[in-house]
Write a protein that binds this DNA or RNA. Structure first.
Length: 155
DNA sequence: GCCAACGTTGGC
DNA sequence: GCCAACGTTGGC
């Protein structure tokens, strides 16, 4: 099983929204590396930390599970910010996995606490200038963060 | 609001 | 294929 960190801006889509929806397509990702993680790396059953970016404070807010493999992201065909003129139904450019809510973090883990934990120093999230919205997390990093968040359903 | 860091685009 | 310009991300 692989582990992931998914960034979202809570003003757009928060852990509260995911809790309400239970399941959602993780649409709107417009970075090729992040896309490739979804299409090539993610498998149903993988666990994902939900991270609130551009939040006050930013940090890990919940736990989710990949519930379905990547499928074409329909927002690439629809008018709006996520539209991509290169995409056609026959040759989509962007894909999205389905994400299922598991739990909110009993203890929110702010970015400062992640920085303060030596075992997490090598997380992609902490790389200077890193903007990757989807990144793999090692099992050890995942366990460390799960403990900080006091998740019930942690490995 | 600022700005560093990055990915992407497009001229050449 | 190079690389400058541009737009975006995201912490502060």
């Amino acid at each position: 099983m692989n582990h992931w960190l998914l960034k979202t801006e809570p003003s757009t889509y928060s852990i509260d929204d995911l809790e309400r929806d239970r399941r959602t397509r993780w649409t709107g990702v417009r970075n090729f590396l992040a896309r490739n993680f979804m299409t090539d790396g993610m498998k149903p059953g993988d666990l994902a930390l939900i991270y609130h970016s551009s939040a006050e404070p930013p940090g890990v807010a919940g736990l989710a599970r990949i519930s379905a493999a990547a499928a074409p992201d329909k927002t690439q065909f629809e008018p709006g910010d996520a539209f991509d003129p290169r995409a056609t139904r026959a040759t989509p450019v962007w894909f999205a996995v389905e994400v299922e809510f598991l739990e909110r973090a009993p203890t929110f883990v702010p970015l400062a606490a992640i920085r303060a934990e030596k075992k997490l120093a090598r997380m992609e999230l902490l790389r200077k200038g890193s903007r990757l919205s989807i990144s793999p997390v090692t099992p050890a990093q995942f366990r460390t963060l799960s403990k900080l968040a006091h998740f019930h359903q942690s490995p």
